[in-house]
Design a protein around this nucleic acid. Structure first.
Length: 492
RNA sequence: GGUCGGUUGGCCGAGAGGCUAGGCAGAGCUCUGCAAAAGCUCGUACGGCGGUUCGAAUCCGCCAUCGACCUCCA
């Protein structure tokens, strides 16, 4: 039996996964900032970690999965002054900041449901944890890694770096970083340009502000994740995930805050999902080249030739490794659509098979393929190779189905095939059947009638009638499949 | 300028010293009234140049090239 190995961004090696307190696993993933719609790139990362969460659960771990909602604390620094991001968007829309938060939080959760993401076990918000963040900032001051200036609190990177290693995750060193920061202004308060804010004093125009020992203000962006992960998963926990673009500075700062406050390494395995590209370029809010999940589903985007379903997109994501870049384009979506249908059709066929005399070679091949599903997933969640095995299993299922629905395997192997195939497609990859065939009794009955009429026309060699029915159904989005034994239909 | 990661067949995308990835597209065949579906068979590949090795897509060096991060982003 294989054992789970995870690529750890911190050590830059694949490591055997050994939870701190088995069978429990603590998983923290940086969630969205809810001042805008999530774009498809965000969805990829959350889908990757959804798959990881699902596989950990499938593997028998009891997982506490924390994914935060950032509803405070993000700063835009373009003018060198702290502007709360949520607040500036609120002014544009003439809404209360918490209205913006509510709107986009709900929108985000809708998107999650659409893509069949399981809800995290805890979904904490930054504004709900101001006290914890203040406490952590106080602890950092007490430990000599932070200082207060004029109502704001900054993390003292140089002081931290004397005792610990700032840059351990991203491979940077502070001298180079400081050289790179030289020309930015608005940094007078800080001891050093690389220091980052734990708490910012709120100006008179700020609406989202809270009382603190340093006056009214709001928390720095990096602090919320440290405070909430510590609160819900402890000072040390198993897995911390997020997008590659958060590695620096966000995750680096998180490590510094946790180590500085708790004096221990907070995270055992750091995992980073890679970017979703669009015309070879990273999809990002600032570049304005992002594509919204809803545009994909409606097909309302210049890049798209038609609408693609959420499961097609999810399957496309799963066909590549979570840590590889993925470029989205029409061809890839079309491929994924066809491939997914192939796998899901085999689910239906599999349920209809009957056992006949087992063929030893086939039996062995199927058992090996079933076992390989776990092995590939254990190898750093290699969904691409898992899907390759599933395709090969689907091929076996199709052969059985074509041979009079007769499976040349033992009952035990059939049971293994059935549970493995379904578990990996639905429970692990998180795919689901989207079209209505197969779970709509009324349609099934009507279609059976139509198919019977067409088949009697075929028996009578009345090709005009049978083709008319077939063409009309195709027009309506229903494809007829004739095989030797019977005729089936599929809603496209 | 610094840090990190890519470059695999028509396209997407795994793999990581010898062992068929897989899908989509393409060609041929089987089945079939025709088509679709399904099945079988087939082809083309590891950015370039050196090196290590019995053997390199895989390791090392150099070069080219693309990208991410260093500033808000999953």
């Amino acid at each position: 039996m294989s054992e789970l190995h995870i690529y750890n961004s911190l050590s830059r090696k694949k490591e055997k996964f050994e939870p701190l307190h088995p069978p429990f696993v603590g998983l923290y993933v940086c969630g969205p900032t809810v001042y805008n719609d999530v774009h498809l790139g965000n969805v990829r990362t959350f889908t990757s970690f959804d798959m990881i969460y699902r596989y950990l659960v499938y593997s028998g771990y009891k997982v506490r999965y924390v994914r935060n909602i950032t509803d405070a604390g993000h700063l835009t620094n373009e003018q060198g002054e702290g502007v709360n991001r949520l607040e500036s968007q609120a002014q544009l829309e003439r809404l209360e900041p918490m209205e913006v938060v509510q709107k986009y939080t709900v929108g985000f959760q809708d998107v999650c449901r659409l893509f069949n993401l399981l809800p995290p076990t805890i979904e904490p918000s930054a504004t709900g944890h101001i006290i914890e963040q203040i406490e952590m900032a106080q602890q950092l001051i007490a430990n000599g890694f932070a200082y207060e200036v004029n109502g704001s609190v900054y993390f003292d990177v140089k002081a931290y770096n004397k005792k610990h290693n700032y840059g351990i995750l991203s491979g940077r060193n502070i001298d180079e970083l400081m050289a790179g920061y030289r020309d930015l202004d608005g940094q007078e308060e800080k001891r050093n340009s690389i220091d980052f804010a734990l708490w910012k004093k709120a100006g008179p125009a700020h609406i989202m502000k809270w009382k603190s020992p340093w006056g009214e203000g709001f928390p720095g962006w990096h602090l919320e994740c440290s405070a909430m992960s510590t609160k819900y998963l402890g000072k040390q926990f198993d897995i911390h995930g997020g997008g590659m673009d958060l590695k620096f500075p966000h995750h680096e700062c998180e490590i510094a805050q946790n180590v500085g406050a708790c004096d221990c390494e907070p995270v055992k395995y750091w995992m980073h999902g890679n970017m979703l590209n669009f015309n070879g370029q990273k999809m990002s809010k600032s570049l304005g080249n992002s594509i919204l999940p809803i545009q994909l589903i409606t097909g309302d985007h210049i890049l798209l030739d038609k609408a693609y379903s959420p499961m097609t997109v999810r399957f496309l994501f799963m066909q590549s490794h979570y840590s590889s870049e993925l470029d989205i384009n029409i061809k890839g979506l079309q491929d994924a659509e066809k491939g997914l249908r192939k796998l899901l059709n085999a689910v239906k066929y599999l349920a209809e098979l009957k056992i006949v005399a087992a063929d030893e070679k086939t039996e062995k091949e199927i058992i090996a393929l079933c076992n390989s599903c776990k092995e590939f997933m254990d190898d750093d969640f290699n969904t691409a190779r898992l899907i390759a095995s599933l395709y090969e299993l689907a091929s076996h299922i199709n052969i059985f189905f074509n041979a009079g629905k007769s499976a040349n395997i033992s009952q035990a192997t059939y049971d293994l095939l059935l549970t493995t195939y379904n578990a990996f497609i639905f429970d692990v990859l998180g795919l689901k059947e989207e079209n209505i065939s197969g779970n709509n009794d009324a349609l099934d009955k009507v279609m059976q009638l139509v198919i019977d009429i067409r088949n009697s026309a075929r028996t009578n060699k009345d090709w005009a009638t049978s083709d008319k029915i077939r063409d009309a159904l195709k027009e309506a989005g229903i494809v007829i499949k004739d095989s030797k034994e019977n005729t089936t239909y599929e809603v496209v």
